[in-house]
Design a protein around this nucleic acid. Structure first.
Lengths: 197, 197
DNA sequence: CTGCTATGAGACATCAATGTCTCACATGCG
DNA sequence: CGCATGTGAGACATTGATGTCTCATAGCAG
């Protein structure tokens, strides 16, 4: 049966195209199907055979972004150890997907009426739960709502991705910059308290 | 001379159209010229008489955003008093323009090759200078670069504007959420140090 | 009243991106 | 070899936004 090999090859190519498209759209969110195809090294016709249209491509990218997010969430083991350490692991794990996330984050702003993929709600909830846990354990302040902390994390990830891609921030500082700002803020603290060694 | 009254009336209308367009494009960044015209209560022809095209409209919005930013920077008196208080004043003053800023912030991501308005560089520099002052006075930590703090402020303003417009954050909490997160971070601190009373 | 000006409405032409189609070619398998 | 399948190249039609144009009308100053 050629079906198995067929679907396997398709999946490989599909993934390659998807990653190339993600990389391109991260830099130029209005790139043409033509540009996406060229970037992936295939013709527009073939691109169209894999993804029925630009909509389908963006949806597929959304699924990819959700999958990578959930993988990062799993890898970060959000409910283990101190919440602050979990945040640090989360940002570190999610860093490779930050560009794609930034693209999808702004793209979602114009989905207006349409229902957005339910995956985001689950991701939002998992991240918000982490901040809630940190608040309940006394690690995090309670005057900043988990919803806002979640939103702020998205915003900082997007800002960080853009700042890196434009050379305003060193790529290696990405995680440190985001985690330190999100957790500790810009103010110089007299002592960095660690409640668990 | 009818010229004076003429230009005056034009300016008023122009400003009204600009503000309406800003409000609309903040919510739906891909709005049509037709939608912009309808939102402003004028016909597409008249809109086109004021702004030669979509490009010109966006450029005008950019100028408006820059002007509002600089006005906020002036009103915040960034070089007076403690740097943390200056940041607070800045966010408070810039809040009304946050939606427009968010739109322009993402719009700038796709200006790729073209040179961007020099006004942004000046604004960047003034904000970065504030953070630098805070670092030199010992108020702010020095491991987060002024460039990153500036970028992070933009990101938080955009996130905040979207979170408010989608009802995830209360409008009245906007300034508090942003300032507290940017300055203090999510971690609960044993004592909030105030180096000047 | 008489013109002048800004406007609204709408009819185009244009342009770019998209979606669909055909055809030729190459690769791989029986 | 002969056949099937995936692909690239390119020719279309379509669609949506845009830019430009004309014309009728309302408001206003002289």
């Amino acid at each position: 049966m050629s079906h198995m090999r067929y679907s396997c090859l398709m999946a490989v190519d599909r993934d390659h195209v998807l990653r190339t498209a993600a990389a391109l759209l991260t830099r130029k969110s209005t790139a043409t199907m033509d540009e996406v195809a060229k970037a992936a090294g295939i013709s527009r016709a073939t691109l169209h055979r894999h993804f029925a249209g630009r909509d389908a491509l963006v949806r597929a990218l959304e699924s990819l972004g959700i999958a990578e997010c959930e993988a990062a969430l799993d890898a970060a083991r959000l409910d283990e150890g101190a919440a602050r350490d979990a945040v640090h692991r989360l940002v570190r794990e999610i860093e490779p997907a930050a560009g794609l996330l930034a693209f999808l984050y702004t793209e979602n702003q114009l989905f207006e009426g349409e229902e957005q993929n339910a995956g985001w709600a689950r991701i939002d909830e998992r991240i918000a739960a982490l901040f809630r846990r940190g608040q309940q354990s006394g690690e995090f302040r309670i005057d900043l709502t988990p919803a806002w902390l979640t939103e702020a994390l998205y915003g900082l990830l997007a800002s960080g991705a853009w700042a890196v891609s434009e050379g305003r921030v060193a790529r290696n500082d990405f995680t440190h910059m985001i985690v330190e700002l999100l957790l500790g803020g810009a103010l110089r603290q007299p002592e960095q308290p660690r409640e668990e060694s």
